[in-house]
């Protein structure tokens, strides 16, 4: 019984079960919901969230209350920069990725320096950075939608590439593999878990704790910037607040995937499942044809239920 209980409350099992239940519910509510092409469409949306969640996972696993609330602003910046650099030309896609990724990597590094060198709490640092980046976006674009996606980028995100899957899904799978290799097969990966679970011990073993943590925030910015490029490929154009909607879902996807906000545990595979589950939930609620408020109530209630199942802190002991 205890074994059954611990299996059922394993985040990975739970996220997978939620995905299956949501698929079944969607199919029951609206036949065709779980059809192949529909699932591919849902996975594309999940992939966008999943890419941001990759950076968010790293920052959260790295510990010291790690969280990156500036990913939304970085996505917007990535999308706007990429859109303006590409200006609808296929030949400029590589340059666009470079500019968007470079700028947001830099922003992430600044976040990391603030958190490690000045020891500003991550929530405050990344929140403050959000205001700065949003201000910069207004200067860059003067508040109006600007830039266009190149046709090849839009095809990469929306059209089948191999086995009927769009390129973005292949990219996401690749990111999943790379994250697994990074976290489980490299010294850096072990160092990330070490600084996340016991910073003091990690420091005493000679790990460059500050450099590693700064790098994690840089990578989070980089993932957000690349997500911005994908977002403009998905929607065709960009506006200055296009990334805002991903900030808290990226944190939730990480939590649903079993990565503790306390740091030092969990893996990206869980966050990928979390991103899919969250996207499915939103989609099922849309098919319910409930009014907006009804969807909000159910969404909030489901999050609380997930918290009840495995997002709880230990009991204080005398």
């Amino acid at each position: 019984m205890n074994r059954l209980r611990s299996t059922l409350t394993d985040p990975l099992v739970l996220a997978t079960l939620s995905i299956l239940v949501l698929l079944a519910a969607g199919e029951a509510l609206s036949p065709g919901f779980a059809r192949g092409d529909q699932i591919v469409r849902l996975l594309v949306v999940s992939a966008i969230l999943g890419l941001v969640a990759a950076g968010q996972s790293l920052v959260v696993i790295g510990g010291r209350e790690g969280i990156d609330l500036s990913v939304g602003a970085s996505i917007s910046l990535g999308a706007v920069l990429a859109g303006n650099v590409m200006a609808g030309q296929d030949g400029s896609i590589f340059l666009a990725v470079l500019v968007a990724g470079g700028a947001t990597f830099l922003i992430g590094l600044i976040n990391g320096l603030g958190v490690t060198m000045l020891r500003i709490p991550p929530l405050v640092m990344t929140l403050g950075m959000t205001g700065v980046v949003q201000g910069a976006l207004i200067v860059i674009s003067r508040g109006i939608p600007s830039g266009n996606a190149a046709p090849a980028l839009m095809a990469f995100v929306n059209r089948p590439l191999v086995f009927g899957l769009p390129g973005i899904l292949i990219l996401w799978a690749l990111v999943g593999v790379l994250m697994w290799v990074l976290l489980r097969r490299t010294r850096l990966g072990y160092a990330i878990y070490a600084i996340g679970s016991n910073e003091r011990a990690a420091e005493l073993t000679g790990l460059p704790v500050r450099a590693i943590r700064t790098l994690l925030y840089g990578l989070s910015g980089l993932f957000a910037g690349l997500t911005g490029v994908i977002v403009i490929g998905y929607t065709g154009n960009s506006f200055v607040s296009v990334g805002d909607q991903y900030v808290l879902p990226s944190v939730i996807a990480v939590v649903i995937g079993g990565i503790s906000l306390a740091g030092g545990q969990g893996n990206y595979f869980g966050a990928m499942l979390g991103a899919i589950a969250l996207t499915l939930l939103t989609s099922v609620l849309t098919t319910l044809q409930l009014e907006f408020w009804g969807r909000q109530l159910i969404f909030g209630a489901v999050l609380l239920m997930l918290m009840l199942l495995y997002g709880r802190a230990g009991r204080l002991r005398a």
């Binding site: 944190v251 906000l261 009014e291 109530l297 909030g300 999050l303 918290m307 802190a313």
Partner: peptide, 29 residues
């Protein structure tokens, strides 16, 4: 929820915020 059931504060208040906001829209669309 947070002190009694020991839920995680950030995610929980994000979720209850969505619920309170949904209720507000229910009362006055």
């Amino acid at each position: 929820l947070i002190a009694g059931l020991r839920f995680q504060a950030i995610v929980t208040t994000f979720a209850t915020g969505i619920i309170f906001g949904g209720l507000a829209l229910r009362i006055l669309p």
